[in-house]
Amino acid sequence: MTIVEHLRSLGHRIVNAVWRIGYTSRFFLLILLYSGISFRRFHLTIKELFSSGVMSLIIILVAGLFVGMVLGLQGYETLKRYGAESALGSLVALSLVRELGPVLAALLFASRAGSAMTAEIGLMKATEQISAMEMMAINPIARVVAPRFWAGVISVPLLSALFSAMGVFGGYVVGVVLIGVDQGSFWSQMQAGVDFQHDIVNGIIKSFVFGVAVTAIALFEGYDAPPTAEGVSGATTRTVVESSLTILFLDFILTAFMFQGE
């Protein structure tokens, strides 16, 4: 009896998950399909760039600075043992550009802007603003969702570049200014160690993929949220959890593709 019940609930969950995947994909396709308006009337996207990109600047810059400073400190302590302090610049820059910049910036974006997007759209739905728009013969996916999507996709790579640059500066402050690593070797080792195509371009690709994933998840959760206070708060939590896990999972996949056997 109980086994049958368990099997039934398992089957139910699987069917539900598959249904959800299909729904998410359809939603994603609709966003792309109705994206015309976000570019024809670019001020809509600019407005969202402000609330997702500009409003995330402070947290990204401060977090980037501190992560870079920690990297400088920890890296120095480790490298000193091998007498390789001069490689500090290369270590700081490589870790930031390849991994920490894209991943941490996307994680911060998910919790700062992604959750806000979910809550905003969820509440718009709960207060019938979405339905009102539909009854006005205005497609809410084109008018509300797509501009937010593109704003997110544009913001995340820029934010992660800012994060990395700020982190390099933080590493420089700790390594060169405070500890006293030679400035020349700090920069020259960094330039020798970081390859434009291999490291920086791949980092940008990563952050672009993360941007698409985070924003799509945030918008979908908001659009799919049950129109109640509980529903919206649950959707906000799910946005942060799901997009964080997705970022880390995608990071593994992308790293495996980008940095394997050369």
Partner: peptide, 15 residues
């Protein structure tokens, strides 16, 4: 600022 950061990464940090 974002594009400037990219340029810094490309020129100053990268090769």
């Amino acid at each position: 600022a974002g594009l400037a950061a990219l340029a810094v990464l490309a020129l100053k940090v990268g090769n």
